[in-house]
Design a protein around this nucleic acid. Structure first.
Lengths: 385, 385
DNA sequence: CGTTCATGGAGAAACGTATCTCCAAAGGCT
DNA sequence: AGCCTTTGGAGATACGTTTCTCCATGAACG
């Protein structure tokens, strides 16, 4: 049997089972070769419009759907992007990061979809066989811990990796993060302007980048302006510990007259603690916390929040990743030449390119002793949108 | 050149680019055939343990990772499950369903992972080419609208589809939903027991299953006990409209002395409205709303909520789907024989199998005029866990 | 000694697409 | 008339697995 015969009429005598139509069936039905079908459907090759439309019509009539697996095998592109979320214990993410993550993932999904990609949700704790079984064109990593073995392996195997959160020691293709230092300094300045004399901080005990950078910025500011640091740290993944820490902070002999809380529930907790101690907000205590939730617009009083702009981060991360995958610079302003990791890098050739995104301070009554102003943003690096 | 030569040493003279090791490379390095490698790595075939471990070691040394695309092409299984979320306008899901969806998706992801599958998030509004480009073993559909063309096409093309929410007219492999009727009746009974004389309802104007079933259950109950229905309906996707509707409900001349709100923000809105009218909760007004958020544990007073148990739903949906994919009955109690749609069904052969999951009423101060009790659940169908 | 079985493993055929190479025919040009 | 170029399309190969079939070999057995 010749190859041609084999190609047009497979399954010679077998009871031809009724299965999904393949490209061969379309070719046979349209009286053309599979090359022509492929070209017609994908808009490639040189074909007259008449042939193209005829093939398309036949394909439609046969209900032809190209096999994603075959296409992926052939082209090496799956159109799939992994969305890795670091897990703390059993939970896919810390509860305090819930709103941030949800917003970010939403924006990422949308951005990916807009460019023809879909997102696969993959907790980092996933069984290894699951990871290996999926053809990923690239991966988004949220807040990777230092020395994340998963990230390292992905990177080594040539899969582009873009992280949300400046990575510690793992090599990534690119990263995006907020300018946490600028954000904290902006808040401290804002509180000072509102009349704060001693600003306290509610922070975490974990060593992730966000907590570390924010705390360092606070300590640096204290050193600069000559204020004694006043802060309490607690394990941020434990929702109950936050209330206790808030209470501790306001119970101190050197009680602050303004507090910034790094985590989402801190606002509520601090407000409750203030009530317990008979402190009026904002008269006796100025309050700001970092949160994406709009419940703080409706508290009594409304609380000033810092938004990390998760949607912007999600969109940027995905676009950066797809740029790396496709080898295109779509104008994100990141040095594209460095986006392609040498398969076998010999020595460290500098840190991967990163982008700092501005945050947004949403000023509400809790941080204003004078007349409320409108929304302001902290200083942002030049050249950003 | 013989096939054997081609197999062992491809790319005869070409500058052998350094790429990922394939199964052939492993076979060559281990001095066995690719069949043996495949069998050794997958635990199939009859091989002595010595060979198996040797092959595994070589594969490890070469950093061999099987190609997911090739495997999928060959086996017809991708290990990927679509998670379709119906979109309203631009948003991936209604804000009122946010917490429910997030919990449900989390549980679904976890359940899928536990069985070796990963979830692909696919808004129903996705470009068609994205859908077609992904090899899905099955799909979870959240709250499909009647006659969803997407679901119909998936089902027709032989992809198992399990829906969260009893589907209207689209054919699905199976579905899971809460027993909304029992839930509403349970709440109405609970409020009656607490002394309610006229129970009002805050409901939606959309025609989705949840809203419809719940409203019908309310109206049926009213007819049975001889109470005149007192309800207000508003477009649930509009967060601002809820507050207005809550206000309207309490402003009526036949003002209810107890209200059940079908949507998450209703609790807050009703509480605010009650304050405006000088109504004390629970003394003048009993309050219950449907919500997955635990903010209602901390409101003043805490509000009784109905939980739809999204985690249970997510887990069940995924397990049902994977059962259908693998043709296994893992004891979900659903008739497995019906889970496999005939590729070409001739006529309607009855509705697809469905499961009703119980809800949970979390009783708090807002619905109690006497001493608070502990958590109770509405009557549930026998045989459920 | 001839036959049967179990063991260990090799060959080769798919899976369904994209794409590289090549060819025929039909103008267009000198 | 001969040559070049453009158009339209066919052939065949490769992507990297899994798996069905089949063949040696040696041991067990009557």
């Amino acid at each position: 049997m010749t190859a041609a015969a084999n190609q047009s009429g497979r399954r010679p005598t077998t009871s031809r089972r009724l299965e999904r139509a393949g490209i061969r069936d379309v070719a046979a039905a349209a009286g053309v070769s599979i090359t022509t079908v492929s070209d017609a459907l994908n808009g490639k090759g040189r074909l007259p419009d008449e042939t193209r439309s005829r093939v398309r019509e036949v394909a439609e009539r046969l209900g032809y759907r190209p096999s994603a697996a075959a296409r992926t095998l052939r082209t090496g592109r799956s159109g799939l992007i992994g969305l890795t979320v670091t897990t703390y214990g059993e939970e896919p993410f810390t509860f305090t990061e819930f709103a941030y993550f949800a917003e970010m993932a939403r924006a990422a999904t949308s951005a990916a979809l807009g460019r023809g990609y879909a997102l696969v949700v993959l907790p980092a704790s996933s069984r290894h066989d699951v990871w290996g079984n999926i053809a990923l064109d690239g991966t988004v990593v949220i807040d990777p811990p230092d020395q994340d073995p998963l990230v390292s392996e992905l990177y080594r195997s040539g899969v582009p990796v873009v992280s949300d959160g400046k990575p510690g020691n793992c090599p990534v293709t690119a990263w995006v993060d907020n300018d946490h230092e600028a954000a904290v300094l902006g808040i401290l300045d804002h509180l000072s302007e509102a009349g704060a004399r001693r600003i306290g901080l509610l922070t975490g005990t974990s060593t992730d980048t966000y907590t570390r950078l924010s705390t360092e910025a606070y300590l640096g500011w204290c050193a600069k302006v000559g204020q004694e640091p006043v802060y309490e740290a607690y394990p941020a993944h434990d929702p109950a510990a936050g209330a206790v820490a808030a209470d501790r902070l306001l119970a101190r002999p050197d009680r602050p007259d303004a507090v910034y809380g790094l985590f989402d529930p801190n606002g509520t907790d601090l407000l409750a603690a203030a009530r317990r101690y008979g402190l009026r907000v904002p008269d006796d205590l100025l309050l700001v916390c970092c949160s994406e939730s709009d419940v703080y617009a409706a508290t009594e009083p409304p609380i000033t929040t810092l938004s990390l702009k998760p949607r912007k981060i999600g969109t940027t991360v995905v676009n950066l990743l797809i740029d790396a995958i496709e080898g295109v610079d779509s104008g994100t302003g990141v040095d594209i030449a460095r986006l392609f990791p040498p398969r076998f890098r010999t020595a460290g050739n500098g840190p991967p390119p990163g982008t700092l995104m501005p945050t947004e301070l949403i000023v509400r009554a809790s941080s204003q002793r004078r007349s409320p102003r409108t929304t302001v943003s902290p200083p942002r690096p030049p050249g950003e949108v």
